[in-house]
Amino acid sequence: MKVLVLFHSIYGHIYEMAKAVEEGVKEVEGAEVILRRVPETLSDEILGKMGALEAQKALSQVPICSLDELSEADAIIFGTPTRFGNMTGQMRQFLDATGGLWANGQLIGKVGSVFTSTATQHGGQESTILSFHTTLLHHGMVIVGLPYSFQGQTIINEVSGGSPYGASTIAGGDGSRMPSENELNGARFQGRHVATITAKLVR
């Protein structure tokens, strides 16, 4: 059973969440997990002006995903920051190149799941994941979220992301806030949950 964790990250918040998702997948017996990123379309000049070059150096150790790796996976867990309540343009561009996979039905029946990050508490935590689901449904994927059995999403004593649609983190307006332990636990739970369901489907 192969689980692909595919993400886009600029400042490293989604990368940290992706690594937690990876940890959760590894907890399931028989699960092989592959961590991949989508290509960055912004130039180094622009990334430098955004203060993101240092984070990009760390991200460069993660291989860029090929389209074949999507069709080879039994489940795909996508991670993307929010842009105006939707996925980033980089993730959208990558998915727009999957027309061939769609035409051949190569993702039908595979498990799909999404996690995200936003600058503010209500900056697209839910809409980004829900709008992402539209693409997964067009591919015929089986959508899995983050159930309330992860009780960390019900806490009210601290600022935290997380919804039944998927794990999430709040980066802060200046990007200085990295994922909290509760948010990382949500990502681990989601990875484990997706892998557990996928194992049942591939039997």
Rank of each mutant, 00 (worst) to 15 (best):
Q93G: 12
Q93F: 11
I155G: 00
F115D: 01
A119R: 15
V111Y: 03
T134V: 11
T120W: 10
A97R: 15
T135H: 05
R92L: 12
M91K: 09
R92C: 04
G124Q: 11
T120L: 07
P147E: 10
H138N: 14
L107V: 11
G145K: 02
L101E: 04
I129T: 06
S113W: 00
Q125D: 13
Q151N: 12
L137P: 00
V142A: 03
G145E: 05
L136F: 12
Q106N: 09
S127E: 09
F94D: 07
P147T: 01
T128P: 09
F132R: 02
T134S: 05
A97P: 04
G124W: 09
V144Q: 12
G152F: 08
G112A: 14
L101Q: 06
L137N: 09
D96F: 07
F150D: 07
Y148F: 13
H133L: 08
T135Q: 03
A119S: 14
G100I: 00
T116K: 04
G105H: 08
G145P: 09
T154F: 00
G145N: 07
E126P: 01
G152W: 09
G109F: 05
R92I: 08
W102A: 13
T98I: 01
H133V: 09
M141Q: 12
S149T: 15
I108W: 01
T128K: 10
E126V: 15
F132D: 03
T128W: 03
I155A: 02
I108C: 08
G109C: 07
L130A: 12
T118S: 12
L146M: 15
V114R: 08
I143D: 10
L95K: 05
S131N: 14
F132T: 06
I129P: 02
Q93A: 15
L130Y: 05
G140S: 09
G109Q: 10
Q125C: 11
F115A: 01
T98D: 12
H139C: 04
G112I: 01
G105C: 07
G112D: 05
H122F: 13
S117F: 02
V144K: 02
R92K: 15
Q151I: 08
S149W: 14
T118A: 05
Y148D: 10
E126A: 08
A97F: 07
T116N: 14
S149Y: 15
V144E: 05
T116P: 08
V111M: 12
H138G: 11
L101C: 10
T135M: 01
T116I: 07
T98N: 10
L146Y: 11
L101T: 04
G99C: 04
Q121K: 13
G105Q: 06
E126W: 14
Q121G: 13
H139W: 04
T118E: 06
H139Q: 14
S131T: 12
L146G: 09
T120Y: 06
F132Y: 05
Q106H: 06
M141W: 06
N104V: 00
L95Q: 03
V144A: 14
G123H: 04
V142T: 13
H138V: 05
L130D: 07
A119Y: 06
